[in-house]
């Protein structure tokens, strides 16, 4: 099998990817813009009219994006010191710690969501402990609120971010930190002038990888979010499973996709000056 004749190996892969991903998304876009024949299942031009008729869907989009951003931010705050700390310990310990970070996530997300559910339940373990401080009642709980959705999404984002931050931090030679110290930089200064700019590129990539699914999530909000926690993802999945209007659901999902990608793009642009030239490590 020479190199030249290898191309046929790629055929099954391309066949699946194109038909499952490229083709349908393309068709969705085309039909929704009225550029292709009306296929019964696909979005129609008037789907967009329906979407923009009221502000409802726009508000939901905004809420979903906001949820994605907040949960990503919370996850970054937790993941950063962890990823950095792991990069500074001996190699053997690193492997163990990284394995321990990934382990919970090999278990189904549903189970993790359920675990959160049990954890947060009224009169359950967490509230029983917190109520000991007499600040809140053991009966109450943040379950069935939007907050628990946000926390759950942040939790799901942790392993990716820890891994990514670990990878960027690993490449920062300790000598750079030492030399910054010898030049008089305090801990804060070392963080802002050295660590932050050098880990930023990796962090942004990881954040995008985490933000996008979070904004498009629906299971977490369905189980944990309660009536006020509905996100655009819930409405979309409803269209498919309950209401059986896949055309509209597809149109909404296109809106979600564009909204999410635009946000990611904008953030990438805004944060660029903070890390320019950092890819030269």
């Amino acid at each position: 099998m020479t190199t030249k004749r290898r191309w046929f190996l790629s055929l099954p892969g391309f066949a699946i990817l194109t038909s499952m991903l490229v083709l349908p998304l393309l068709l969705q876009v085309l039909t929704s813009l009225g550029l292709a024949k009306n296929l019964s299942e696909f979005p129609r031009a008037d789907s967009w009219r329906r979407i923009f008729e009221s502000t409802l869907y726009l508000r939901l989009l905004y809420k979903s994006i906001w949820t994605g951003l907040v949960s990503t931010a919370i996850a970054i705050v937790i993941a950063w010191p962890a990823g950095w700390a792991i990069s500074r310990v001996p190699k053997g310990t690193q492997k163990v710690l990284l394995g321990a970070v990934i382990l919970p996530y090999l278990v189904s997300t549903i189970l993790l969501i359920y675990g959160f559910f049990v954890l947060l339940a009224g009169n359950g373990p967490l509230m029983s402990v917190i109520s000991l401080t007499n600040l809140v009642n053991a009966d109450s709980s943040i379950l069935y609120t939007h907050t628990s959705t946000v926390l759950m999404l942040a939790y799901e984002a942790l392993p990716v971010l820890i891994l990514v931050i670990y990878a960027s931090s690993e490449s920062i030679d300790q000598a750079l930190i030492d030399s910054a110290r010898s030049l008089g930089a305090s801990r804060m200064q070392r963080f802002f002038h050295i660590i932050l700019p050098l880990t930023m590129p990796g962090l942004l990539g990881g954040s995008a990888l985490v933000f996008v699914p979070a904004a498009g999530s629906f299971v977490e909000s369905q189980i944990l979010g309660g009536p006020n926690g509905i996100l655009l993802g819930n409405v979309i999945s409803d269209q498919i499973r309950r209401i059986n209007d896949p055309a509209f659901g597809a149109a909404l999902s296109l809106m979600l996709l564009s909204g999410v990608l635009t946000t990611a793009f904008i953030f990438g642009r805004i944060l660029k000056p903070l890390y320019r030239r950092s890819n030269v490590v």
Partner: peptide
Amino acid sequence: IPWLILGIAMLQI
């Protein structure tokens, strides 16, 4: 891309 969006796209095909 969120599996939500992919799932719908595949269902339509």
